[in-house]
């Protein structure tokens, strides 16, 4: 990966390599974040069944994108910094996705086991050790 990609955007001015984010953008992003917070709280009173979690996570992702792009300067930054960040999210998705897949692969087996071995007054043996 080349770290030599060009700086994007305007505002180079005479501040050297500093890129001050325009106040309009800062205020706009803050207002959008607060509006999205109010939206997600209001939406939590309505029920969309299985979509609830995806709506809430979608709004959170939109807020996160605003924070990363503008408050964290990724929009103007060297592309490599953004690449590092996105790559970490990709690995988090693999991590959580595969753990969930694995968990649910064995869920039926666990339920069957619990049915066949109803909990007694003794604690359920975890390692399969019986006396």
């Amino acid at each position: 990966m080349s770290g030599q990609e060009q700086m994007q955007g305007a505002g180079q001015g005479n501040h050297g390599f500093a890129h001050p984010v325009p106040m309009k953008i800062l205020v706009g992003v803050a207002a959008a974040l607060i509006a999205l917070t109010i939206l997600t709280v209001l939406l939590s009173d309505f029920h969309f069944g299985a979509f609830d979690i995806w709506i809430a996570m979608g709004i959170a992702a939109a807020k996160g994108t605003l924070v990363a792009l503008f408050f964290m300067h990724l929009y103007w930054d060297k592309r490599f910094n953004g690449f590092v960040f996105i790559a970490s999210l990709f690995f988090v998705a693999i991590f959580i996705g595969f753990v969930l897949l694995d968990t649910h692969t064995y869920e039926d087996g666990v339920k069957q086991y619990q049915q066949d071995h109803p909990p007694s007054s003794h604690s359920v043996p975890l390692s399969g050790e019986h006396k």
């Binding site: 205020v27 992003v29 803050a30 974040l33 917070t37 408050f71």
Partner: peptide, 11 residues
């Protein structure tokens, strides 16, 4: 969010 805004402004 407000603290993030004032921090970005501080930068």
């Amino acid at each position: 969010i407000i603290s993030s805004f004032t921090m970005a402004w501080a930068v």
